[in-house]
């Protein structure tokens, strides 16, 4: 599974990317984003794991993590999103869908029916007693599909908007 976490190794402060000195970058947004981004991704992961018996699940988790990515886009454009999550969106979509299908097909092995929900109670040293369900695998798939979708939207629609904005900036620069 691809960890949908953000740029953990990135130092605090304005990014060192090619557009770090872009006049459209806001310092305030960058600083706030550093606080919010990881929190949002963590909250998304919480929703993913809480989803089986409480409000949450793969779809909501994907939306929350996707929104965090949208914040990245607002701060630094499509280039910033690419740096945070350097994956092709179709890989995320394909992997997610395949994972969901595989968890469904695994139901034939565990319960003799497609999409059968298997569950197991595990004793994990640090976490204690954990109820693991096969629905979680399905949810991870859904999560990946939603993140891939947001990524695709930001890249296809967002990149075009970035280009338009760059054009405007260039023209203004020429005028002054």
């Amino acid at each position: 599974m691809i960890p949908p976490t953000g740029p953990v190794h990135r130092p605090t402060g304005p990014p060192a990317g090619p557009d770090a000195n872009s006049p459209r970058r806001s310092v305030i947004l960058d600083v706030v984003l550093d606080l919010v981004f990881r929190t949002a991704v963590l909250f998304g992961l919480f929703l993913l794991f809480a989803g089986h018996n409480a409000p949450g699940g793969g779809f909501v988790s994907g939306l929350v993590i996707g929104t965090a990515l949208v914040l990245r886009y607002v701060a630094g454009g499509a280039a910033e999103v690419d740096r945070v999550l350097p994956l092709e969106e179709h890989v995320l979509l394909g992997a997610g869908l395949l994972l969901a299908f595989a968890s469904g097909a695994a139901g034939w092995i565990f319960g003799g029916a497609f999409l059968y929900g298997a569950k197991a109670t595990l004793e994990i040293p640090v976490l204690g007693t954990v109820n693991a369900t096969s629905a979680l695998v399905f949810d991870v798939g859904v999560d990946l599909v939603v993140i891939g979708l947001v990524l695709g939207l930001l890249r296809s629609l967002g990149a075009a908007a970035d280009r338009d904005a760059d054009d405007v900036d260039t023209r203004r620069g020429v005028a002054s």
Binding site: E88, G94, A105
Partner: peptide, 14 residues
């Protein structure tokens, strides 16, 4: 299910 799973494989083959 099969065509959906195949759609996933097809996406990965892009």
């Amino acid at each position: 299910g099969l065509p959906l799973g195949a759609a996933a494989v097809s996406l990965l083959l892009l």
